[in-house]
């Protein structure tokens, strides 16, 4: 019973982190229709910015988190401005954008490893003193509760932003048809730039949360990217709700999959889920 409730907690927490990555990824995919692989490295940018400001400069932790989120957003925004926008203008194919985004991923990840080092580090001040709660025999830490709460907050905020504001409607128009959106007078490139900022900022925040929960390392982005991508595909690519649904499904499959076998197989299980969906339902759960 204890194992069972612990597995449920682990699944939900993993699902919440994946959902944050998938949200940004899907938002960007919806607007641009290409798989932005550089999305994963935003988590490392967020995590390492907080690491730098709190551990090296000894700044206030909340301020550092805000800077980390903004900085990740800014990098995402600049990538769009200097790499993806020129490519889109030239009507480059999705594959070109995919390869370019992976180039950006590789370069940024390596730059982080040069600036800091490749060691695994944690963001939290003193891990042993972390508060934890016991519910139905499973243990959940304070950080993990913060993860759940902020994930819920961001999802709600994003839904409100998309449905209640002009900006949200513009994003939806671009997702439906960029050309038409342009004709009716939407400055599509500006909006797409903001979409990159928001999506990357959310990914940066996810990276920071992971950093407080377990820790950061320069290569953390690849794993989180894949989980976000798998969640998006499983749920329905470009569909925000689908991404969240896929994220929790992935969290559960992954954690219950290793109930009886070694935890080393977690990644293989996640990718097996991807392949199964690619074969039998490539559009995902939510997309028609």
């Amino acid at each position: 019973m204890e194992i069972f409730s612990q597995l449920i907690f682990n699944s939900i927490i993993a699902g919440a982190v994946y959902a944050l990555i998938a949200l940004g990824f899907n938002l960007i995919y919806g607007a641009t229709k290409f798989l932005n692989l550089a999305h994963g490295v935003m988590t490392a940018i967020g995590g390492y910015t907080v690491f730098y400001f709190t551990k090296t400069l000894d700044w206030n932790i909340y301020l550092a988190v805000i800077i980390g989120i903004l900085f990740a957003g800014l990098i995402g925004f600049s990538l769009d401005k200097f790499v993806y926008f020129p490519l889109r203008k030239r009507k480059a194919s999705n594959m070109v954008l995919l390869v370019a985004s992976f180039g950006a991923f590789t370069a940024i990840q390596a730059i982080i490893a040069i600036l800091f080092n490749s060691r695994f580090q944690t963001l939290s001040q003193n891990t042993s003193a972390q508060k934890s709660f016991e519910i139905f025999g499973g243990v959940i830490t304070q950080t993990q509760l913060i993860i759940l709460a902020s994930a819920a907050l961001i999802m709600t905020g994003l839904v409100l932003l998309l449905h209640k504001t002009r900006f949200g409607k513009a994003i939806k128009a671009i997702s439906d048809d960029e050309e038409v959106a342009k004709i009716v007078g939407i400055n599509t490139n500006k909006i797409i730039g903001y979409v990159f900022f928001i999506g990357s900022a959310i990914a940066g925040f996810a990276g920071i949360l992971v950093g407080f929960d377990t820790g950061i390392e320069p290569t953390m982005g690849l794993d989180l990217l894949f989980k976000g991508v798998i969640a998006s595909i499983v749920g329905g690519i470009g569909n925000l709700y689908g991404g969240v649904l896929g994220a929790f499904l992935l969290g559960f499959v992954e954690n219950f999959g290793i109930w009886k076998i070694s935890g080393d197989w977690k990644d293989a299980i996640a990718f097996a889920l991807l392949i199964v969906f690619l074969i039998f339902r490539p559009r995902g759960i939510m997309n028609k």
Binding site: V83, L87, A100, G103, A104, T106, I111
Partner: peptide, 19 residues
């Protein structure tokens, strides 16, 4: 790590200027 940076930058530049 520099090697990775160079590979990444090469990929970006190729995509931009000589796909």
């Amino acid at each position: 790590q520099m090697r990775q940076v160079v590979y990444g930058v090469i990929l970006i530049l190729l995509m931009l200027y000589r796909p």
